[in-house]
Amino acid sequence: MTWSIEVLHRDGAALQRILIADPADNEPRTVRIGRALDNDLIVDDAHCAAHHAEIVISGDAATLSAVATVNGIIAPNGKAVRALALDNDKPFKLGHTSIRVRCDRWPLAPELPLQTRPVWPLALLLLGLVFAHESWDIWLKDVGSQRPEYLYTLAGVSAGLGAWSSVYTLFGRLVSGTQRFFHHLAIACTGFLSGIVLLYLLDVLAFASSWLWPIQIHQPVVVVVGAATVRAHLRLADPRHWPGLRYAVALVAALAIVVPIAQQWMSHSRWSPIESTGILKHPALRLAPPVSIDDIAKRQLELKNRTDALKAKQEDGDGDVYYPDNPG
């Protein structure tokens, strides 16, 4: 039986490794870890003690225990403990140093297949779809005597998506050493297109039904799609930190949804600034029947009551207040 004790870089590579061959006499072996030079494994970490911990290997079991340390051992689950039974190769921490213990009896994870299918054709296809949508969008507005700036718009969109994907690519290269530009481009284009499709469907729904809420939820939908896109980028670029980052992304997304709503309520006493759709789709898409003139009268009454409530709430208050005349 062979054991190895490794000090890991934060990207997972072993910086230092000591191998312990099976002791012939079956005597328990003790491996001492700390900053002092008389340890078996010397770590250069200011948050480690001179004699921080020791691993006792006996047969096919290994136990880690703290020796003379205030920081203790940080178990793989993140909790500080004084002793830890080692039965897998999940890294634990002493101070800021990650340490992994491996045993040749423990199962190894299977080999991961290399990604054989290239991603760039998909990424470029998606980019093509983005271009197609943008061109369509400008063409819809191409109704005046002056042609809109098709090329500038397309160049701007590609520059934006390219820059966005490059940032994640660079980030991924820095933290995990992999470079996956086309993956990130595909993710960015997918996020963009799914946002467009969702908003279009919401518009159609609003036109068909005469409901206002599909338009009012545009902003939260955009935020959710954006958060999902960022999630995909981060999981690809920095998979080891995603478990922690997910909370940050969720928090930012939640704030991006809640803050505008709360501000709208504080400033204008309503949840959404959108009170009319102004959208027009093909007449065949309209499903909601027209209302009667009495329904519109009821609508007016409802609006009157709402403005009256608003007036009572926003009263400037100086109508009945007595201010003494200025003696001047």
Binding site: L212, S269, R270, E275, S276, P289, P290, E302, T307, L310
Partner: peptide, 12 residues
């Protein structure tokens, strides 16, 4: 004037 309050309907 107060803020506006609006609503929309289909009408024939």
């Amino acid at each position: 004037l107060t803020d506006s309050r609006c609503g929309e309907d289909y009408f024939k």
